[in-house]
């Protein structure tokens, strides 16, 4: 049995969070993860407050376990959704794509646990000082918006930088990954890609098939030129985007416009020509569809075995 401070902090059985993937992490997936003993997350993405409120109500109808909301700080509705989190008394908030400092006081005052995704030690220190309950150190192996530093390098550095629990993300899809980041000092994990193929995940069939088929070298990062790199599968769309990125006759505005709506096209429509199929480098290890609860129990059983065998190299 694996138990860490994250279990107690969040009131969950297994120290695992499901990534707050935009257009993918909805009430059904979040509830399935929470019912399976982890912390399910709804993505507030770029949608307005009422969309989020309706998803929150749906989660509550499906589970009485704790759940969270991921807030994308670049969303045009960020002020509105930040307020709805408080009104709806959401137990946990994770944040991405920016600095959540300006909302943290109000969230904490409302008794909400705030767990920002941090791409560097300085940001980890900053949010720890503002009262974060934990941080998610997310390495560049992960899917979607990524930083430069890898999980292997980032996690121990963040663990050294702050006194609050660290949750590792990026490049983890099985028990070995969990055991490895625990060795680096993390006390929890966040997985996205593996949950893409959970039975309760409503992402388009084509998206799931692509994840199941993906091999080690099948992802790339687009958007570096625009300052916000995104890890995606090397689909025709991604290849075209990369070509345009290296073409100096194409303006940044044209490039932004070409990429607009591409995650929605992948997640909802499975459109290979216009879709950005975001996923982590670990997609190659994701080979079977299972209920979320089974994914969770299986990977922690495996992690336990790996951790127990960890002394075999010590003589």
């Amino acid at each position: 049995m694996i138990k860490t401070p994250i279990c107690e902090l969040l009131g969950i059985k297994y120290p695992i969070l499901q990534g707050g993937m935009a257009w993918i992490a909805d009430a059904r997936l979040a509830a399935a993860v929470s019912n399976g003993g982890g912390l399910g997350l709804i993505s507030a993405m770029n949608a307005d407050g009422e969309h989020l409120r309706s998803e929150i109500n749906k989660v509550r109808a499906l589970t009485d376990k704790p759940f969270g909301v991921n807030i994308m700080l670049m969303s045009p509705y960020v002020d509105e959704v930040a307020q709805i989190i408080i009104e709806e008394k959401v137990p946990v908030v994770t944040t991405g794509a920016g600095n959540p400092a300006k909302y943290m006081e109000a969230w904490r005052a409302a008794g909400i646990k705030v767990i920002p995704v941090v791409p560097s030690t300085a940001i980890a220190k900053l949010v720890a000082r503002k009262g974060a309950s934990a941080v998610i150190a997310e390495g560049g192996e992960s899917g979607g918006h990524v930083g430069e530093i890898t999980t292997m390098a980032l996690v121990p550095q963040v663990c050294d930088a702050v006194d609050i629990p660290v949750i590792a993300a990026g490049g983890i899809a099985d028990g070995r990954g969990i055991a490895a980041v625990f060795m680096l000092g993390a006390s929890g994990v966040q997985l996205g890609t593996r949950f893409l193929v959970a039975e309760e995940c409503g992402v388009h069939r084509t998206y799931k098939d692509k994840i199941l088929k993906a091999k080690d070298i099948d992802t790339t990062t687009t958007g570096k030129r625009l300052g916000h790199p995104v890890r995606v599968l090397k689909t025709p769309f991604a290849k075209e985007f990369l070509k345009m990125e290296y073409d100096s006759s194409i303006s940044n505005e044209e490039l932004e416009a070409f990429g607009g709506g591409s995650l929605r096209a992948a997640a909802l429509l499975g459109d290979e020509k216009k879709g950005s199929f975001m996923c982590g480098q670990i997609a190659a290890l994701v080979n079977k569809e299972q209920p979320a609860s089974q994914i969770i129990s299986e990977i922690f059983e495996e992690a336990e075995k790996v951790l127990c065998g960890g002394t075999k190299c010590v003589i």
């Binding site: 600095n99 400092a101 300006k102 791409p119 560097s120 300085a122 940001i123 900053l126 930083g147 300052g227």
Partner: peptide, 24 residues
């Protein structure tokens, strides 16, 4: 300097001067 550099810079300046700076 990108956004990560500036946050690091501000944190270092806070330590150096013993003050709090609002990073905005």
């Amino acid at each position: 300097l990108d956004s990560l550099d500036t946050v690091e810079l501000v944190m270092n300046l806070e330590d150096e001067f013993g003050i709090q700076l609002e990073m905005n």
